[in-house]
């Protein structure tokens, strides 16, 4: 798991405090990149390395932004000197990039410190809205932390910094757990493949395993029972499945999807939406038309897909075996 702390040279103490808190609250083995920016950037010709660093800063910021068009930031000082922040040598990656946000040298210094995790800015200084004033040319807004964006932080107060990092840690954990849940559902697994997930998400396997208990505790608690009689081979019958919500907080809307061996189900897959909304509705039934092809059993896969808006639920395929008589 990688974090980047963008800061102005001379602000080492604050950078160290941020780093210590990230290690304590997010992950003790977090790989932290210290990205120091020279204080006089925007007033003198800067080495290309600094431009490269600032392009990374802008990329991270763009990742936490909602915007209509891309833009460039122009820094100008009172002496008339100006430059593009993260100058790319005249090349643009987007035809829309000709649109500009103009800031002062002081404004530029106020963009730091900032913290990025998993390739997006998660912490930026309060007042960034004022620094990067909306212009008639460029329309944008920052995405809030809980919507995969960033938190605006008063970096002057250490307590505030620590509090915001705690929020970031909690948000990262929630996002990771949700991604694990979706991954397990998409891959039809019983538990997440941390190895692959760590590559996909760019986070340490150890970080994912740290939240394993949280992931396991999020397993959906639905029990499936076959209510109907054994089937006859080759004969079309209706199978009744009873699905019971055994979770403490009822699950609400759940999509149930049932698959069978090719050719065994009249409709394949069968999908129904069940509403587990109050105690009277804890147990519900679905009916499936099955014409079994083999004796003595017909295997079915029952998959539950909970409402994505509800709290995190890890859903996995449940094997259900029907009895079949010859």
């Amino acid at each position: 798991m990688k974090a980047e702390i963008f800061y102005l040279k001379g602000d080492e103490d604050r950078r160290k405090h941020i780093e210590r808190t990230l290690r304590r609250e997010v992950f003790d083995h977090i790989d932290v990149d210290h990205v120091a920016i020279q204080n006089d950037y925007g007033t003198v010709n800067a080495p290309t390395e600094v431009d490269k660093i600032l392009r990374v800063y802008l990329d991270r910021l763009r990742a936490s932004m909602i915007r209509v068009t891309d833009f460039r930031i122009v820094i100008s000082d009172s002496s008339g000197y100006w430059c593009y922040m993260g100058y790319e040598g005249g090349r643009s990656r987007d035809p829309e990039v000709g649109k500009f946000i103009r800031i002062s040298y002081k404004g530029f210094c106020s963009l730091f410190p900032a913290v990025a995790i998993m390739d997006r800015m998660v912490m930026a200084p309060q007042g960034i809205h004022e620094i990067l004033k909306a212009s008639s040319e460029v329309s944008w807004m920052l995405r809030p932390l809980d919507l995969h964006g960033l938190s605006l932080v008063n970096f002057e107060q250490r307590d505030f910094i620590e509090d915001e990092i705690r929020k970031v840690a909690s948000q990262m954990r929630n996002e990771t757990t949700k991604l694990c849940a979706r991954y397990v559902q998409a891959r039809r697994l019983q538990s997440p493949d941390f190895d692959e997930l760590s590559i996909l998400l760019g986070v340490d396997e150890a970080y994912l395993r740290m939240h394993q208990s949280h992931i396991k505790a999020s397993r959906i608690k639905l029990n499936t029972k076959v209510l109907s009689e054994p089937l006859r081979i080759g004969k079309l019958s209706t199978v009744v499945l009873q699905i019971t919500d055994e979770s403490e907080n009822m699950l609400g809307r759940v999509r149930v999807q049932v698959r069978g061996p090719k050719g065994a189900l009249v409709r394949d897959p069968v999908a129904e939406i069940l509403h587990f909304t109050n105690d009277d509705m804890r147990s519900q039934q679905i009916q499936i038309g099955v014409r079994p092809l083999a004796v003595p059993y017909c295997p079915l896969e029952v998959l539950f897909v909970p409402d994505p808006a509800s709290e995190v639920h890890i859903s996995y395929p449940v094997p259900v075996i029907l009895d079949v008589l010859s």
């Binding site: 061996p261 090719k262 083999a294 003595p296 059993y297």
Partner: peptide, 12 residues
Amino acid sequence: LGLAQWIITLLA
């Protein structure tokens, strides 16, 4: 599920 069905038939 088809594979499972026939494997089960033989095991049984």
